[in-house]
Structure formats: structure tokens, C-alpha cells
């Protein structure tokens, strides 16, 4: 198994859903950065608010989703960041459409 590229990591993160919104963390714009080096995968992600108690479980699910497509033992770092703070304009077109934003 080779190291996944960034788009493969993004695809893997598309399987991690925010249960309340019924949408992936990627569609909601919660994944800020994906960087794959020769021997590690690094992801910066956020939550919609620091008051959100599910942060840990979404981070764990993200790690598991990435580990599943990476060579065994690959370090997968998923960092929870609050800078910049998330805002709704970061949502993808699909998410905006689902929630009824004007096109």
C-alpha cells in the first residue's frame, strides 16, 4: 500500500459525517488543510464552535478513515485548529444547496 495523495485523503474524510447535519466534514468546510509527506499525513480541521462536544470523536473518526487508506503504521496527525474560526461561507456548494442557500 502506497501513501495516499491529498485527494485520496480528502475522499476518505468525505466519509466522516457530522451526524447533526448529515453531511461530511469536508462538505461543511471543516477541513482546512491536508498535507501528505513521505512518511506522514497531516490534517488541520476545525469545528463550527469551541462549544461543540463531539470534536474528539470527529477527530478520531478522521484518523481512522485516513489510517484505513494509508500503509500500516503511518503517523496520521489530525489537528484541531481554531484559526481561522469557521464561518458558514466556508461550506461547499453542495452543503449550501442542501441547506437552501440561494444559488
Amino acid at each position: 500500500m502506497n501513501m495516499p495523495d491529498e485527494s485520496a485523503v480528502r475522499d476518505a474524510l468525505c466519509t466522516v459525517d457530522d451526524p447533526e447535519a448529515g453531511m461530511s466534514i469536508v462538505a461543511l468546510g471543516l477541513v482546512y488543510n491536508i498535507a501528505v509527506t513521505d512518511d506522514a499525513v497531516n490534517v488541520d480541521m476545525t469545528m463550527t464552535t469551541p462549544a461543540c462536544p463531539v470534536a474528539d470523536s470527529l477527530v478520531e473518526q478522521s484518523k481512522a478513515a485516513i489510517a484505513a487508506i494509508s500503509p500500516p503504521g503511518t503517523p496520521v496527525n489530525v489537528n484541531l485548529v481554531w484559526e481561522p474560526i469557521w464561518n458558514p461561507s466556508m461550506m461547499s456548494g453542495v452543503a449550501k444547496e442542501f441547506f437552501g442557500w440561494p444559488g
Binding site: E20, A21, T48, A51, N87, P88, F99, G100
Partner: peptide, 12 residues
């Protein structure tokens, strides 16, 4: 408050 937070997914 928690619902207002999530309502930000809706059009502003």
C-alpha cells in the same frame, strides 16, 4: 443557543 449555532448552516 445550540440550535442557533447550527442554524448558521441555513442561509444567513
Amino acid at each position: 443557543g445550540e440550535r442557533l449555532e447550527l442554524s448558521r448552516f441555513m442561509p444567513p
